[in-house]
């Protein structure tokens, strides 16, 4: 029964690699929340966010071929604004989580925000060409 469920889960995850990425990010977040250590949250969470953001940045730069001016401002915004805002929000979330007592409104919102933003960043970092804007691909 359990084995059956697990194998179906495995199949579901394997069907699309990005599912696995999101699950991994969520698991990391869950572990950080369960550990309940502000320092660990700050360092591990912060490092993970930085890593993802760096990966996205490198890929974006490569796509620009070194000259961002050839792109339409909108295409530039589509490429850079979402990950930049996601990274900033993840940083804000870490500040909220670390700075407020567990159970407070700010702490809870911080956790929610971090979960969302980190999952999105992980997804963005692992993306091949699937999530890229059509216009930029053309």
């Amino acid at each position: 029964m359990i084995a059956h469920a697990l194998s179906r889960l495995g199949a579901w995850l394997a069907a699309r690699p990005d599912r696995l990425t999101v699950v991994n990010a969520l698991l990391l977040t869950a572990i950080l929340i369960l550990l309940g250590s502000a320092d660990l949250f700050r360092f591990v969470g912060g490092a993970a966010v930085l890593l993802c953001a760096a990966a996205i940045l490198v890929r974006s730069l490569r796509r620009m071929d070194g000259n961002p001016l050839t792109l339409h401002p909108y295409d530039l915004a589509v490429m850079l604004a979402p990950p930049a805002i996601a990274a900033a929000l993840a940083a804000l979330a870490i500040i909220l989580v670390v700075g407020h007592a567990p159970g407070s409104f700010a702490h809870t919102m911080g956790l929610v925000l971090f979960t969302i933003e980190f999952a999105l960043l992980a997804l963005g970092a692992s993306d091949g060409g699937d999530g890229t804007p059509e216009a930029a691909r053309a």
């Binding site: 979402p82 925000l113 969302i116 933003e117 999105l120 997804l123 999530g131």
Partner: peptide, 14 residues
């Protein structure tokens, strides 16, 4: 704002 952000970022990514 968080709700907007979540949905909107979802729309951007997928």
């Amino acid at each position: 704002v968080v709700a907007i952000l979540a949905v909107v970022q979802w729309a951007i990514t997928r």
